[in-house]
Design a protein around this nucleic acid. Sequence first.
DNA 1: TTGATAAGTGACTTATAGACACAAAAAGGA
DNA 2: TCCTTTTTGTGTCTATAAGTCACTTATCAA
Lengths: 247, 247
Amino acid sequence: MQTNDEQTFLEHYDKQAYDAPLVTVDPVLFTYHAEQLKVLLVQRSSHPDRQMWGLPGGFVDLQHDATLEDTALRKLREKTGVTPPYLEQLHTFGNATRDKRSWSVTVCYTALIAHQECAAHIATVMDARWVSMQQLEMLPLAFDHGMIIGHARERLRQKALYSIVPAYALPEKFTLPELQQLHEILLGMPLQKKSFRRRIEQAELLEDSGEKRADSGGRPATLYRMKAGSGAHTFLRNLSGATETEE
Amino acid sequence: MQTNDEQTFLEHYDKQAYDAPLVTVDPVLFTYHAEQLKVLLVQRSSHPDRQMWGLPGGFVDLQHDATLEDTALRKLREKTGVTPPYLEQLHTFGNATRDKRSWSVTVCYTALIAHQECAAHIATVMDARWVSMQQLEMLPLAFDHGMIIGHARERLRQKALYSIVPAYALPEKFTLPELQQLHEILLGMPLQKKSFRRRIEQAELLEDSGEKRADSGGRPATLYRMKAGSGAHTFLRNLSGATETEE
DNA sequence: TTGATAAGTGACTTATAGACACAAAAAGGA
DNA sequence: TCCTTTTTGTGTCTATAAGTCACTTATCAA
């Protein structure tokens, strides 16, 4: 290689690197199982932070992804085999230091799915697993993924105050006590049964499936499902303690 | 240059181009002046959409910007000469078609500033101006910037329901009737004077500056300022009509 | 049949927003 | 000086929704 050519090459390469930070998409997929909130992590197979656990994200594929959502859904399908019913952009983190390789930008999403929807697929692979919020505290994560999950967790908490978005982490049909328990875990406080039911009835976002379920002794609970059309992200009214700060 | 090296170089270069969409930062800077909400636009000096008006954004400068916020603030300082007191990430838009040149990602911010803070500086340059929401409808914008401003506008409307963030579009000292008028414009509906004042008092986010101002006949209004520390993004309680949908 | 258990409701209390009349503080003119 | 006009700011009643908690309903198991 001649010196001149190398010079040109480096200039060219540097210019490219100058204009374009690395761009990745990192979905934070939550589910609810065994009375715990869990997040999907994968074990990195490549540099940097090889072998460490992190979010199931990756680079935008300019050839096949038409949008950033496509990238998020593609990465989630690769790991879970299915498309989650809820996906919403969380925040974009970008700075010079979060990735050793270069200035790096990651567009993050919050996603929710029923545990049973992908439990089978995940059980077949060794490099992906559900990690509970409790386990998460002990597990060092790649890059700034721990911080990102913290943000997603906090956003989900806000959703629990004002919406029934968390219901997407439950199966298609679920009971109100199940949903209330999930909200209580997200909010870290007990909720009044009556207030909770009242808010959800008023919002008219759920419909009676006609079925009931009795887990073990006690009156059977009505199974509800999301009403088609009107999104579960519709605002509910205030819940006690809602007078806090935004994300 | 040897074939092998060129091969390696191209692979490297292609991979780089393959992995990296264009990354820009686009701040939507609002202000309030003459009873109108206005947004800062600049006239593009380069391809594509040359001569058209658009958001005062640009590429991330990997050498000088440590974070995405740095990029947003740098671009705003270039056009206004000052640093806005409020800057919050809005949303990231990325797809294959929004920029003719390439797959493109833009990280957007909502920013607010008092009109007087930068009116002088803007008046000196020909390629930047404040455009009212009304004027905006007639003006074709570069890229998808019209859609982005629409999203920012809608987010600001939500803020007006739950917070006093819009106060950052006012001077340091302002009266409650002024703030209420701004909120009414953002929400597109009249507000009850008593309810509005009560919510703001309860939030304890403003403090009496001790001064008063009488614009024209009538009782002089108390001038308030933001309390240091506690951000104005703290949630207020519900306002009628709040049972709508999130952004 | 009876007790245990969990789902779901009735009804009262409390808190906050809506509505609107009224008081307070200035300007200006006769 | 005093009265009118104008705008800011408050008092207070009403309406609505959330908090509380006892009570009813529906099922299982002994």
